[in-house]
Simulated assay, not measured.
Amino acid sequence: MIRVGLNHHIYDKLLKITSQKNVMVDEKLKNHTYTRLGGKADFLVTPETYKEVQEIVKLANNENIPFTLLGNGSNLIVKDGGIRGIVMNLQRLTDISTTGTTIVAQSGARIIDVSREALTHRLSGLEFACGIPGSVGGALFMNAGAYGGEIKDVLVSTKVVDKKGNIQILTADQLDLDYRTSNIPEKGYIVLEATFSLKKGNYEEIKAIMDDLTYKRESKQPLEYPSCGSVFKRPPGYFAGKLIQDSDLQGKQIGGAQVSLKHAGFIVNIDNATASEYIALIHHVQETVMKKFGVKLEREVKIIGEDPQ
């Protein structure tokens, strides 16, 4: 298969939509993921406006080119063969604004920063998000949550681009938000921004909750190594980390990927792991826990891209 990255026609068309600094050719995706894994993208594009997002989607459709939304790469494993076609990263869309008890945040903004914006304005409801590393778009994509809170508790609406490149405004109810899921991937929506409704609160009380959650996260999670965060969803009636720990898998290593010694629910990249090694360790953990406890661990992390040639 001829790499799209060699197609100057597509490159020229992308430059008509956005500036040269926003179009990277044969870019290593390991430089753009929290796991530090992943092969090359033919084109990695970082649009600066909603109009550019629309035009890039329409270009991919018109030229029949594969299109992938990367997000900020926090809950994602990109395979070693990389991704063909156009890969879009919305890291330049980071505006956050507050009016009364409502916060509107663009999809590339970190959900952590949105929670800090809420604190600044003495707004309560997003304390749970103070340690979630993903973007706003990614948080909606998987209905991110922690410490008893989740996005669907505070989301009012979202502005998205659909598969045809049209902008739609959807209510939270229209996203089918459930435990770590939404219909965003199924519908092929690209989140542009989200509107959150919060409640007036006391600054010191909100800060105390956020400080406590931050301490819990930093003391229990292996933040010193690249990882995708929690690898598995919580199985009904169990805790994934406890099952993995009780299966004597902590410290288990395949290549440079290791089941964290600090928190068994994390797989960390301790020594230049490849995506293949990381994925192999995920499968090994799933098989071992199933064999020992009869419990199926379902991945929370998304795996995309091609296997190496």
Score class of each variant (00 low, 15 high):
Gly5Pro: 08
Leu6His: 15
His8Asp: 15
His8Ala: 14
Tyr11Val: 03
Asp12Cys: 10
Asp12Trp: 10
Lys13Met: 12
Leu14Gly: 01
Lys16Thr: 15
Lys16Glu: 14
Ser19Arg: 11
Met24Ala: 14
Lys30Cys: 08
Lys30Ala: 11
Thr33Gly: 12
Thr33Pro: 08
Tyr34Pro: 07
Leu44Pro: 03
Pro47Asp: 05
Pro47Ala: 09
Thr49Ala: 08
Glu52Gln: 12
Glu55Val: 10
Ala60Asp: 11
Asn61Ala: 11
Pro66Val: 09
Phe67Gln: 07
Thr68Asn: 05
Thr68His: 03
Leu70Gln: 04
Asn72Ile: 10
Gly73Val: 06
Gly73Leu: 02
Leu76Cys: 03
Ile77Gln: 00
Lys79Asn: 05
Asp80Lys: 00
Ile83Pro: 00
Ile86Asn: 03
Val87Ala: 09
Asn89Pro: 05
Leu93Thr: 04
Asp95Cys: 15
Asp95Ala: 15
Ile96Lys: 06
Thr101Glu: 07
Thr102Phe: 12
Thr102Arg: 12
Thr102Glu: 15
Ile103Pro: 00
Ala105Thr: 09
Ala105Trp: 04
Gly108Leu: 01
Arg110Pro: 02
Val114Ile: 09
Val114Lys: 09
Arg116Asn: 13
Ala118Lys: 02
His121Arg: 08
His121Val: 05
Arg122Leu: 09
Arg122Lys: 14
Ser124Thr: 12
Leu126Ile: 09
Glu127Arg: 08
Ala129Glu: 01
Cys130Arg: 00
Cys130Ser: 07
Ser135Val: 06
Val136Asp: 01
Gly138Trp: 03
Leu140Ser: 01
Phe141Val: 06
Phe141Lys: 01
Met142Glu: 02
Met142Gln: 03
Gly145Leu: 05
Ala146Lys: 05
Tyr147Phe: 08
Glu150Ala: 05
Glu150Arg: 02
Glu150Ser: 07
Val154Asp: 01
Ser157Val: 06
Lys159Ala: 10
Val160Ala: 11
Val161Lys: 04
Asp162Gly: 02
Gly165His: 07
Ile169Pro: 10
Leu175Gly: 00
Leu175Thr: 00
Leu177Pro: 00
Asp178Tyr: 07
Tyr179Gln: 08
Ser182His: 09
Gly188Glu: 02
Ile190Lys: 01
Leu192Cys: 11
Leu192Ala: 07
Thr195Pro: 12
Ser197Tyr: 08
Lys199Thr: 05
Tyr203Gly: 01
Glu205Cys: 09
Met210Leu: 07
Asp211Gly: 14
Asp211Arg: 09
Leu213Cys: 03
Leu213Met: 06
Leu213Ser: 01
Thr214Tyr: 10
Arg217His: 15
Lys220Thr: 13
Pro222Val: 02
Glu224Ala: 12
Glu224Val: 08
Tyr225Gln: 02
Cys228Trp: 00
Phe232Trp: 10
Pro236Met: 13
Gly237Ile: 14
Ala240Gln: 12
Leu243Ile: 07
Asp248Val: 15
Asp248Glu: 15
Gln250Leu: 14
Gln250Val: 11
Gln250Ser: 10
Lys252Ser: 14
Gln253Leu: 13
Ala257His: 05
Leu261Met: 11
Val268Gln: 01
Val268Phe: 04
Ile270Cys: 07
Asp271Leu: 11
Ala273Thr: 06
Ala275Pro: 05
Ser276Pro: 03
Ser276Gln: 13
Tyr278His: 06
Ala280Tyr: 02
Val289His: 02
Lys291Thr: 13
Lys292Asn: 11
Phe293Asp: 04
Gly294Val: 05
Lys296Ser: 11
Glu298Thr: 13
Glu300Leu: 04
Gly305Met: 03
Glu306Met: 09
Gln309Ala: 15
